[in-house]
Design a binder for these strands. Structure first.
Length: 867
RNA sequence: GCCCAGGUGGCGAAAUGGUAGACGCAGGGGACUCAAAAUCCCCCGCAGCAAUGCGUGUCGGUUCGAGUCCGACCCUGGGCACCA
């Protein structure tokens, strides 16, 4: 046994033993309760970040502790290996995406392995492997058969930088979510998954996801965006240039407030609406405003405070119930992409319409009243939009009705006139999966001049993607690959061509977690392994996937269920979203406002006399730099920490221990160099304690009932801390698990007794408690001190009831809720004994004026005397 | 504007309605050392010599007792958004 802590050697030895004995290879075993814990599939960028270390250590702590508690644990790892970065790298380095990707995977894996994570690497998958994406293609064909997948020609979001189509969900602020390029509209054919067919179920089942953070559930609900209302039409006689009525003479609108229909005083349409286009033809003066709406930053966050702007088209429509003529305005607040691109305006009861009407002097009509409130068309009040208390007025036959009754009555009347009906609209759109790029799953379709689009026969799968293409930025290289392209039509045998579009990579990540369960199954997409391991017990990943990935995976699971492949409808029982790792950053701005970022090591921080940081200077010139606060680690800000450097200097256990201790795992945590030192210091102390007491612990006998006071005190401390650690494991609060194991060592070091059995028991608890966080050192000490050969197979310790019972207990004494003293009483002392002891306290008497009014005793806790 | 999370020492943070600040970092003092590093010991919310008082974003409330529960508000972070 080394006298000093030597992490490099300890960690290599432990990892070799785990690998040689296949300790973490998961085998289906119905005699044990299963637990499937999985981290979100990483993209193989080639660089392992400290954030990865934190995320996977969370996963690892969970897996290792549950394994000790008797669960059959599966913790797999794989690679989200398709996608655009590989094509960009190909352009930059003239390497094929396949070569680049596989090199990155090897690289990243080699950086990951020194961390000693308990992954079952035998189940590793890469989504760019034909054995994997074959099943993307297979299930695509299944969905095509059932109509869940379909082809349509549609105006799509075209990303001019990525040269690809984006789903509506992937457009952020009018820009591609990855490239940031301003999205253009283009019309091309593509394949879609009918996620909206599952909209109701996706929404309803959110209620069942009790193991998910409320925040994520709320975000999914908002994304799906169910909205119940009435869709109806205003008639008009506006005709296009050829004299045909536009949209058959109807202006369709959707409203959730059909009750206020008698308060409609005008209509507002989007700038792209056909009526707007026609109005501009008739009156070119409208063009500048229409242009402004199309190109103006309609999705800027500041728009919340921006003025509602509009312009009248000079066109009129007819109110379907009153027959009144209503002016049609083009409004910058109406979106063509939502509903019908037109709204009925009720300035009396919609805040937005109210502001618009005021600005342009349009009529305002009150049709809802609330008892006790006074209406004024001059200023807006919250209650104008009240659906609960509001009652209809100035609305003819609807007067006196409440919100729901009024909506029903209006909907019925519109339906009777064949002018509209109740309708549910959704924010959610179908998922476009066609990508005009090379590095992805080929869509298994053959275009035949005679037979049209023909699905590739199942027996011909997979359609293998050639791996030697090198994209050059001019589009999809598959278009020039004759050997890929040319194929006989499966139907008629004539010369035909393959589809060259590939699938969105969100397809790959929608079910990979099931493939881990049957990674080598050549016969089926999923099999017995999936039956055994799914649904997943704990999914761990970033909040940035709260909507897209998690919604797609839920949808895909339901589609698989409906295809008879699995029996469950929700893939993830519990979801944990971990926080990011942040670090201080420092910069200096040049005269052009360009920031130069300094590495934290290049900066000295100056503190005031209270230790508060007040300013920072660069070491190189002593001149001030700006303290940029703590930000997400990023290369551009020079505040990245390399896991490799930390592991080399301190070892993996230190890196793991620090990232767990830095803060609650679900919140962001700040990197701290001195904090890392602290974690290292602790592990050294732990090792030194093991060395110092090795002989005593190795040769210790059985624990007996005859214990000295110090022995009892130590056991109480150890076992009660273990209880706390257990509770914190349960709720995944690993930062306090670590502080718990720190307490254990503090208690052991403070122990004055000489009972070898107590020492052995206590240190054994400490080793198992710290094992999930710092497995290597625990593994080595476990062996060296003669506890056993493999700590991973040891049973998780149970707090012992006899250690937790105390003869005497300390009670805090309060007067009027303020702490005034403490007493030591027998654990089963009678109430009057406790009361007498409390009242006898000097500190209590001083604050007591005569007899106490009341004495409250909280058993085992405190006594509160009400004076 | 809507939704979600959060606001506690110099810092990261902890606390089933019951001792606020555990655990750690930084800081101060001391021991060991020729010296340094490492290690060990002590102190460490604010004010005060002390007794004590004040302290968990603000203001109220419930309670014997509130960081924790309720109501209103302020601030920070994240997400979504002219969503009708």
């Amino acid at each position: 046994m080394h006298e000093h802590y030597t992490p490099a050697q300890i960690e290599a030895d432990a990892q070799a033993q785990w690998e040689n004995n296949k300790v973490f290879q998961a085998v289906e075993d119905v005699s044990k309760p299963k637990y499937y814990a999985c981290s979100m599939l990483p993209y193989p960028s080639g660089k392992l970040h400290m954030g990865h270390v934190r995320n996977y250590t969370i996963n690892d702590m969970l897996a290792r502790q549950l394994r000790m508690r008797g669960f059959n644990v599966l913790m797999p790892m794989g690679w989200d290996a398709f996608g655009l970065p590989a094509e960009n790298a190909a352009i930059a380095y003239k390497k094929s995406p396949a070569e680049w990707t596989y090199a990155n995977i090897a690289d990243m894996k080699s950086q990951m392995q020194p961390l000693g994570l308990a992954f079952d690497w035998s189940r590793e998958i890469a989504t760019c492997d034909p054995d994997y994406y074959k099943w993307n293609q297979w299930f695509f064909l299944k969905m095509l058969e059932t109509g869940v997948a379909y082809k349509k020609t549609q105006i799509v979001n075209w990303d001019p930088v990525d040269q690809t189509v984006l789903a509506n969900e992937q457009v952020v602020d009018g820009r591609g979510w990855r490239s940031g390029a301003i999205v253009e509209k283009r019309e091309i054919p593509g394949y879609y998954f009918g996620i909206t067919q599952y909209a109701d179920e996706l929404l309803d089942d959110i209620d069942q996801l009790e193991g998910w953070p409320d925040m994520v559930r709320a975000m999914q609900r908002n994304w799906i965006g169910k909205s119940e209302g009435v869709r109806f039409a205003f008639d008009h006689d506006v005709k296009d240039a050829d004299g045909a009525p536009i949209n058959d003479g109807k202006l369709w609108v959707f409203t959730t407030r059909a009750d206020t229909i008698m308060g409609v005083t005008f209509c507002a349409i989007a700038a792209e609406h056909p009526l707007a286009t026609r109005a501009a033809e008739l009156n070119p003066a409208l063009l500048p405003f229409i242009d402004e709406c199309k190109h103006g930053g309609t999705t800027e966050a500041e728009l919340a405070t921006q003025d509602k702007k509009g312009v009248s088209t000079g066109l009129f429509v007819t109110h379907p119930l009153t027959g009144a003529q209503l002016e049609v305005w083009i409004g910058n607040y109406v979106l063509m992409g939502y509903g019908d691109g037109a709204v009925m305006a009720v300035p009396g009861h919609d805040e937005r319409d109210f502001a618009f009407a005021h600005k342009y002097g349009l009529p305002i009509r009150q049709v809802v009243a609330v008892d006790g409130e006074t209406y004024s068309a001059e200023t807006w009040a919250e209650w104008y939009g009240d659906k609960v208390r509001g009652v209809m007025i100035n609305s003819g036959k609807y007067d006196g009705l409440g919100y729901k009754a009024a909506v029903d009555a209006v909907a019925a009347d519109l339906a009777a006139k064949d002018a509209g009906e109740k309708k549910t609209t959704w924010r959610l759109r179908d998922w476009g999966i066609s990508r005009q790029r090379y590095w992805g799953t080929p869509i298994p379709i053959i275009h035949c001049p005679c037979c049209g689009d023909v699905p590739v026969p199942y027996e011909d799968l997979p359609v293998v993607l050639p791996t030697d293409c090198i994209p050059d930025g001019s589009g999809n290289p598959l278009k020039h690959r004759e050997d890929f392209l040319n194929v006989a039509c499966p139907k008629c045998g004539e010369a035909a061509q393959r589809e060259t579009d590939t699938m969105d990579t969100f397809v790959d990540s929608s079910w990979y977690f099931m493939r881990y369960c049957d990674p080598k199954n050549g016969e089926a997409m999923v099999g017995e392994g999936t039956k055994y391991w799914m649904a997943m017990d704990q999914y761990i990943g970033g909040i940035e996937h709260a909507v897209l990935h998690l919604l797609y995976a839920r949808f895909w699971t339901k589609a698989m269920r409906d295809a008879g492949l699995v029996s469950f409808g929700e893939p993830f029982k519990n979801l944990f979203t971990q926080g990011m790792l942040l670090r201080d950053c420092y910069y200096r701005e040049d005269t052009h406002g360009k920031k130069r970022w300094f590495y934290p090591s290049e900066v000295d921080v100056l503190h005031d006399d209270k230790g508060r940081p007040v300013s920072a200077i660069a070491k190189e010139d002593g001149q001030p730099v700006v303290m940029g606060g703590i930000e997400k680690m990023s290369k551009s800000k020079n505040n990245v920490v390399e896991p490799k450097d930390i592991i080399e200097q301190y070892g993996a256990d230190t890196a793991r221990l620090f990232t767990m201790f830095a803060g609650p795992p679900d919140q962001s945590a700040a990197w701290s160099d001195s904090g890392v030192e602290g974690a290292y210091r602790y592990l050294r102390r732990l090792w030194a304690f093991g060395v110092k007491h090795a002989e005593t612990i190795r040769t210790a006998g059985e624990l007996t009932a005859a214990l000295a006071k110090d022995d009892k005190a130590l056991r109480f401390e150890i076992h009660s801390t273990l209880k706390q650690i257990d509770a914190d494991f349960e709720r995944l609060q690993y930062n306090t698990v670590v502080s718990g194991v720190m307490k254990l060592l503090n208690a052991l070091e403070a122990y004055k007794g000489d009972n070898a059995a107590v020492l052995r028991e206590s240190f054994g608890i400490l080793l198992r408690a710290i094992y999930p966080a710092a497995p290597h050192i625990a593994h080595q000490l476990w062996r060296e001190l003669g506890y056993g050969d493999e700590i991973a197979d040891a049973a998780w310790p149970e707090p012992a009831a006899d250690a937790l019972t105390q003869d005497e207990i300390k009670l805090m004494v309060q007067v009027n809720g303020k702490l005034r003293g403490e007493i030591l009483v027998a654990k089963d002392a009678a109430k009057d004994v406790i009361e007498a002891a409390a009242l006898a306290q000097e500190g209590v008497q001083r604050f007591l004026d005569g007899a106490p009014k009341k004495v409250i005793i909280v058993p085992g806790r405190l006594v509160n005397i009400v004076a």
